[in-house]
């Protein structure tokens, strides 16, 4: 799906750059937001539940490898899920 290509690129580049798990989860959240805008509500909700569950088990963010605050990742995911 062409609309998802930039979000997929971002996920790949963040992994290659060694960004932390919070940043990587945020990027997956951005991809989900795009999918939601495309009207794919059922798969979005399922994936959002999975990512929110994963988020609960992440270690505290390490500021040297993260580019985003934890609250920002959590609120964006909850917003997409809701």
């Amino acid at each position: 799906m062409r609309a998802l290509a930039p979000a997929d690129d971002l996920i790949r580049y963040a992994q290659q750059a060694g960004h932390g798990p919070w940043t990587q989860l945020a990027n997956q959240g951005q991809r989900l937001k795009t999918l939601s805008a495309l009207g794919e509500h059922t798969p979005v909700l399922a994936e959002a539940r999975r990512l929110l569950h994963a988020l609960e088990h992440l270690p505290a963010p390490d500021t040297s490898s993260e580019t985003i605050d934890a609250w920002n990742v959590r609120e964006n995911l909850l917003d997409t899920a809701g």
Partner: peptide, 9 residues
Amino acid sequence: FIARIVESR
């Protein structure tokens, strides 16, 4: 989900 966002804010 919305209640959790409100709580976080």
